Amino acid sequence: SQSLVSHAGLSVLTSFLNAVDFRRLCEDRFSQFVPATATHRPGKILGALALSLAAGGEQATDIDQLRAAPELFGSVASDATISR
Rank of each mutant, 00 (worst) to 15 (best):
Q65N: 07
T61M: 09
H7V: 03
K44A: 06
G57C: 04
T14N: 05
L51Q: 12
A36L: 14
Q65Y: 02
I45H: 03
V76N: 04
R84Y: 08
V76S: 06
F30W: 07
I82Y: 05
L25N: 10
S83W: 09
F16T: 10
A68R: 15
G57Q: 02
H40N: 06
L49P: 06
A48D: 15
Q59N: 15
P42V: 09
T39C: 02
T81Q: 01
R23S: 14
R84M: 05
F73R: 02
S78G: 14
A55D: 07
L13A: 08
L4Q: 13
G74F: 01
P70V: 01
L72G: 03
H40A: 11
Q32S: 12
E27L: 06
F16H: 12
R24C: 08
R29V: 08
Q2S: 10
L66I: 02
L13I: 13
T61H: 14
D62N: 14
R84Q: 08
R84V: 05
A19K: 11
T61Y: 14
A19V: 02
D62S: 09
S52F: 02
S11A: 15
R29D: 12
R29L: 13
L25M: 10
I82Q: 03
R23V: 13
Q32V: 00
G57E: 02
I45C: 09
R84L: 11
I45Y: 01
E71S: 13
L10P: 07
Q2K: 11
R29S: 11
Q65M: 15
T39E: 09
A48V: 12
D21P: 00
Q2L: 03
L53P: 03
A60F: 12
E71F: 01
E27C: 08
P35N: 11
G43C: 04
L53W: 08
T39M: 01
F30G: 00
S6D: 13
A77P: 06
D64F: 13
L49N: 06
V12A: 07
I63H: 01
A36R: 15
F33M: 06
T81F: 04
F73H: 02
V5K: 13
S15C: 05
S11E: 10
R24W: 04
D62Y: 11
R41C: 00
S31H: 01
F22N: 01
R67W: 07
P70W: 04
V20S: 10
F33Q: 03
S1F: 01
A19H: 05
P70N: 02
A50M: 15
R84N: 10
A77W: 09
V20G: 08
D28H: 13
A80T: 13
L49S: 03
L46E: 04
F16V: 14
T37V: 08
P35G: 05
V76E: 00
S6I: 08
A54T: 09
S6F: 04
